[in-house]
């Protein structure tokens, strides 16, 4: 963390979902304040159904907070935009587009010429290791490959901030491990400000510069922050790694 300019700033966010014309109110998030600096890899850890997706969607601008504000580079976020890239929990690729079509979609929308965007998209397809699959449709890909496309699609649009919502939650353990390695590698090749949501403490310690934990019951509140200063690339069996993981696990279990 050399650069200390603040990229994302969340001020006192809360979210209450209203259902059936407001008769039922579900408080999902409460007083979340958080800031992320440039090129930082922030991981948000929390158990299932604690508002992780909701928090990320608020930062993305897909959901409006009930109270509080989100700033990106000092400007208030009012809606979704290409300055943030999102990788969704459920792959959410465009099924009628090939891998190439999916990855270049953001550039197409941005108005880039066909030749240029092919070039950029190819670069990112190679970066995520999908060369040779440019012409495949999403239904022909495995889960891990689909999520690589999702990552390439978000990266290719060159957003200021990358938001990843449990991107590997639906993968088997083997693929998940591989994808974590890949993510760390891609991030080291092309630095970005990243907010990564997960329910796996191991995944968090492997990837993060900084970890924040969310409380395990609704409404979700921020609990603790851990700075992970381990050298990269990391090994799951290093002594420090295991210690870090152990500490967080113990404290998280306490607050569940």
């Amino acid at each position: 963390m050399t650069d200390q300019t603040t990229k994302i700033e969340c001020q006192n966010l809360s979210k209450i979902f209203k259902q059936r014309s407001g008769k039922v109110q579900i408080p999902v998030l409460e007083s979340i304040s958080l800031s992320v600096v440039e090129n930082e890899f922030l991981v948000i850890v929390g158990p299932g159904q604690c508002g992780k997706t909701t928090l990320l969607r608020i930062i993305a601008g897909l959901e409006t907070p009930t109270t509080g504000k989100v700033f990106l580079d000092g400007k208030e976020v009012t809606g979704p935009g290409p300055d943030r890239g999102m990788v969704f929990q459920k792959y959410t690729l465009f099924p009628w587009k090939t891998v190439m079509g999916n990855v270049e979609m953001g550039l197409k929308i941005g108005g880039m010429s066909k030749r240029q965007r092919r070039e950029v998209a190819s670069h990112y397809i190679n970066l995520v290791g999908l060369q040779g699959f440019e012409k495949a449709y999403p239904h022909q890909l495995s889960g891990g490959m689909k999520q690589r496309v999702g990552i390439a699609r978000a990266y290719a649009n060159n957003p200021k901030v990358l938001l990843l919502d449990e991107p590997f939650g639906q993968l088997d353990a083997q693929t998940r491990y591989l994808m974590e390695q890949e993510t760390a590698r891609i991030w080291s090749v092309e630095k970005k400000t990243v907010i990564f949501v997960t329910n796996s403490i191991e995944e968090a310690v492997y990837l993060a510069d900084r970890i924040v934990t969310l409380e395990g019951k609704l409404p979700g509140r921020l609990k603790s922050t851990y700075v992970v200063n381990l050298p990269r690339p990391r090994e799951h069996i290093d002594k420090e790694f295991l210690e870090m993981r152990h500490t967080i696990t113990k404290e998280t279990e306490l607050l569940l």
Partner: peptide
């Protein structure tokens, strides 16, 4: 187009 705005027609 989030959940709240859709509630009341």
């Amino acid at each position: 187009m989030n959940s709240e705005t859709k509630l009341k027609d």
